[in-house]
Design a protein around this nucleic acid. Structure first.
Lengths: 197, 197
DNA sequence: ACCTGAACACCGTTCAAGT
DNA sequence: ACCTGAACACCGTTCAAGT
């Protein structure tokens, strides 16, 4: 058991990402500094530069891992065997849970200042995230359970609605107030629409 | 015509806010620095401190004016004489226009780190912004043009959908890609729902 | 009442040098 | 290959002092 830190950290890259996410969750984006992260990792302030070309590169890596986990959560939550409404509700709930549990990270994921070179991977991660909603729409259309129409347009519209609710809920959560509206109301609106039947 | 700047700026507060908004629009939130704003205003770097207790106070003032202008835009766009679908479409378009034209400012408005002391005014501004959608829902329900249901829940749900689309569109706009989906698709979804009629 | 200038404690980034 | 230490050019904030 070596008492003093070795010259080489071992896995500084992971340590920085983990520390960054903890800071993000506990103190918000504003409190995130490379020098502070280096301090926490017991390493010089210049060391992060070997693993991330700049601060934005670290933020991009964080956002990327966020998308991967969100996509994973949606895929886990999606059960094609479920009837229409419960299936969409489950997807929405998974999205909301992620938004509430990772509010600052979600902000980062939607921040539009990623490096051009990470744009490709980011786009792929977003596509995978949207994939679950896309499959839901496609399969429901096959079964004639929802109206016909460009499935991609429908996917984006449903995704937008979920995202908006997630944004509102995250604001309420961080402000300490109770969520302005629930999943059920939005899902009902999306399925049945405003017009009376 | 005095050639040199007078000791007193005259209206430094307004000048700082105007400069901040220009920077926000042209270079993004990351490029916003009090010292730079002071330089542009031809004033010492400590001068802004007399008008804003800290950087966040300036951002809060910016967000507040954003809400006021957005609320104004929605009120102008809302025409109670219009039939249901065109009326909601007009509201949505006004929101989208603002989101596209003020992407960075909208981010700021939704950033959840306002000073506690500006929270009250901020909440009032948000209420006013949501007001247009609320009136639309209330009046449409009175006319029996949309289904019954808690009007506030419906308002928030519709607001969330519009906000989500605005967020998506703003990302597309800043990324230079064409908007993923249009207003018409979302409005149609909100009015008629996914389920076949 | 409003602004300046110096000071303090931070940043991110770079780069020669060390191990 | 990975990290350090010093250096550079920035920040936000505070506070005595000036006008």
């Amino acid at each position: 058991m070596p008492a003093s830190r070795p010259y080489h950290h071992g896995d500084l890259r992971s340590a920085l990402l983990a520390g960054a996410e903890r800071t993000l969750r506990e103190k918000g984006t504003g409190a995130l500094s490379l020098r502070e992260l280096a301090r926490e990792a017991g390493v010089s302030h210049a060391a992060p530069g070997r693993h991330f070309k700049d601060k934005q590169a670290l933020l991009d890596a964080l956002a990327l891992s966020g998308y991967e986990r969100l996509a994973q959560a949606l895929e886990t939550a999606d059960d094609p065997a479920l009837p229409l409404e419960p299936r969409l509700t489950a997807l929405a709930r998974a999205y909301l849970d992620f938004a509430v549990g990772n509010a600052a990270l979600l902000d980062l994921m939607y921040a539009r200042k990623h490096d051009p070179e990470s744009a490709g991977r980011m786009a792929a991660a977003i596509d995978r995230t949207i994939g679950s909603i896309g499959r839901f729409i496609a399969e429901a259309q096959e079964r004639r359970e929802i109206a016909a129409g460009d499935p991609h347009q429908l996917t984006v519209a449903v995704g937008a609605a979920l995202h908006g609710l997630a944004a509102f809920t995250a604001v309420d959560t961080l402000a300490g107030t109770s969520p302005a509206t629930g999943v059920e109301e939005l899902i009902h609106l999306l399925l049945h629409g405003l017009k009376p039947r």
